[in-house]
Amino acid sequence: MIALLLRDLKLAVRSGGGFGLALVFFLIVVTLAPLAIGSDTTTLTAIGPGILWLGALLACLLSVDRIFGLDFEDGSLDVLATAPIPQESVFLAKSAAHWMTTGLPLTLMAPVLGLLLNLPAPALLAVTIGLALGTPALSLIGAFGGALTLGVKRGGLLLSLLVLPLYIPTLIFGAEAARRAAHDLPYQTPIVFLAAITLFAAAIFPFAGAAVLRINLR
């Protein structure tokens, strides 16, 4: 399982595609938003947390079809199915690798980009904590969606349609925490909910995802 994780990480770093792409996309969204909305600092402070979360969500969505897609095409997923580890572990390892290549860098980038959006310090902290707690759920849900649409040719649009509604609770709590922090309100409750969603996703999605993988590899 750890070998699989390392392999995925290496592949992501060496091929360059998935690793940098999400980050660059995130950067572009954050750069474009003030250009589209106007550079008024109070407006930016108000909508900054939302933009960061939306950017992170879309950046995550951009790369989820690669989690299983490439391995399904070249057959390594079939090999993994016959490997002496359960599918649940395969799913977990692959989503963890996805998180380390997108969610983690996104989280680390967020405070810097938050400065560009004129976010006050507590909001920066809240966004960073929120992303750190929330992005694992995004990766798990995305991996589930990717597993569902394995057999579908050009399933990108379908994947977004399936995954976006599942992202809603994470988005709500994450953005809510950041918004409250921006207004100097206590933001512990949404953060705790966010952590709960991630733990819940970690509890159910390996099983749901593994079931889906088995069905698709049948």
């Binding site: 589930f144 569902l148 399936l162 509604p165 599942l166 809603i168 609770p169 709500i172 709590f173 809510e176 949404p190 909910f193 969603i197 159910i204 999605f205 749901a208 079931a211 889906v212 069905i215 698709n216």
Partner: peptide
């Protein structure tokens, strides 16, 4: 596949409902 989606979706639909209320 749709059955798994429907079940996971139901769980998240309920979750979304309370998240939206919040």
């Amino acid at each position: 596949l749709t059955s798994v989606l429907a079940i996971v979706g139901s769980v998240f639909a309920i979750l979304s409902r309370y998240a939206v209320l919040f």
